[in-house]
Design a protein around this nucleic acid. Structure first.
Length: 278
DNA sequence: ACAATTACCTGTATGC
DNA sequence: TGCATACAGGTAATTG
C-alpha cells in the first residue's frame, strides 16, 4: 500500500518519536514475514539495541541500531508501522512488536502478510534481500535529467510499467504512477524510450513535485495506510485521476472523462483527452 | 536482457 | 444469508 510519500511520512514520525530509545523487548509472531531471521533470533538480536536513526530507500525503511545492526522493513500492500502505548492491547494482525524503554511499543500490523522484516548489518547493506534490485530513489538528487534519460532510452516497455519497476527508480507505486503521468500529460501506454526530451523533463519535474506535495499532505489514505502514529494521510483529497473513473477531467477547458484501464492486471487512471498516444 | 505471467496472502465489496 | 468473484496501494519467481 504505501509508496514513497507514505513511507517517508512514517520515517519522519518515527524519527521524532523513537530515535534515541532502547529496545527492551522484540517479538515476531509470524515466521512468514521474516527474512534471514526467525522469532528467537529476532528477539535476541534486537533486544538491548539503541535506535540511532531511521533512513529510507524507495519504499524500504532502515532502522540503524547500535552494534551495527540494521532492521529493514517493507510494508508491501497492507503493512502499517506505528507506535502505541505498552498499556494498550496489540492491534489485530500484529505480526511483530518492539517495546521501548519509555513505554512506547512499535507495532508492525499486516493483515495480508505480504510485508517483510529483515535483520542485516549496517556495514553490509548490499547483502540485504530487501535492497536487491533497488534503483535510485525517485527523490534522490542523483535521479536527475541525465540519469532518467539513460534509464528511459534502454526500455520500450509502457511508461506506466516502467515507473512501477523499482529496479529503474525506487519509490513510485500504482497511485502516484497514474497521478504523475496525468499531470505530465503523458499517455501511460507510451513506450519509455519514445518520450521526447521535453516530456522527459516534464516527467521528472512532475514526479518530484507530486511526491513532495504528497509528503506535505502526510501521504494518501485510500484504505489501509496509516502514519507513524496510526493516523490517516490527507493527499487523497488532491488526487486528480486515481479512483475517479467516470468523473470529469479537472483540467481547465478539458471536457474529457477519466477512464480506468489495466496494465499487467493493475488499474491505471487517465484522461484520454489530456494524455494522447500519438 | 527484457517483458509478460503467475504466485504469494487475506480482507472487503459486489453480484447472483 | 450464502456463495462465488473481483479487487486491493507490492514484489519475486517463472517462463518465453
Amino acid at each position: 500500500m504505501p509508496e514513497l510519500p507514505e513511507v517517508e511520512t512514517i520515517r519522519q514520525d518515527l524519527t521524532r518519536t523513537i530515535v534515541g530509545h532502547t529496545i527492551t523487548a522484540a517479538e515476531a509472531y509470524d515466521d512468514m514475514i521474516l527474512v534471514n531471521t526467525n522469532p528467537d533470533d529476532f528477539a535476541q538480536r534486537l533486544t538491548g539495541r539503541i535506535i540511532n536513526d531511521i533512513a529510507r530507500r524507495g519504499k524500504v525503511l532502515l532502522f540503524r541500531l547500535s552494534e551495527d545492526i540494521c532492521l529493514l522493513v517493507h510494508l508491501r500492500m497492507t503493512g502499517r508501522l506505528y507506535t502505541i502505548s505498552d498499556q494498550e492491547a496489540l492491534p489485530e494482525h500484529t505480526r511483530a512488536a518492539l517495546s521501548l524503554d519509555d513505554g512506547q511499543r512499535l507495532v508492525f500490523v499486516n493483515p495480508r502478510r505480504l510485508g517483510r522484516l529483515e535483520i542485516g548489518s549496517s556495514t553490509d547493506l548490499g547483502s540485504c534481500r530487501l535492497l536487491t534490485n533497488l534503483g535510485i530513489d525517485a527523490l534522490s538528487p542523483e535521479m536527475d535529467g541525465r540519469a532518467l534519460e539513460e534509464l528511459l532510452q534502454s526500455h520500450q516497455i509502457a511508461i506506466k510499467q516502467f515507473l512501477l519497476n523499482q529496479k529503474h527508480l525506487a519509490g513510485i507505486g500504482n497511485i502516484y504512477a497514474s497521478e504523475i503521468l496525468f499531470r505530465s500529460r503523458i499517455h501511460p501506454d507510451r513506450p519509455a524510450n519514445s518520450l521526447m526530451a521535453a516530456e522527459q523533463r516534464k516527467l521528472l519535474r512532475t514526479m518530484r513535485r507530486v511526491l513532495k506535495e504528497a509528503i506535505d499532505y502526510r501521504g494518501t489514505t485510500v484504505s489501509d495506510y496509516r502514519d507513524g502514529e496510526g493516523k490517516r494521510g490527507s493527499y487523497q483529497s488532491q488526487l486528480q485521476v486515481y479512483g475517479r473513473e467516470g468523473e470529469s477531467c479537472c483540467r481547465a477547458g478539458c471536457t474529457g472523462t477519466i477512464v480506468r484501464v489495466k496494465h499487467a492486471g493493475r488499474s491505471t487512471y487517465l484522461c484520454p483527452e489530456c494524455q494522447r498516444l500519438s
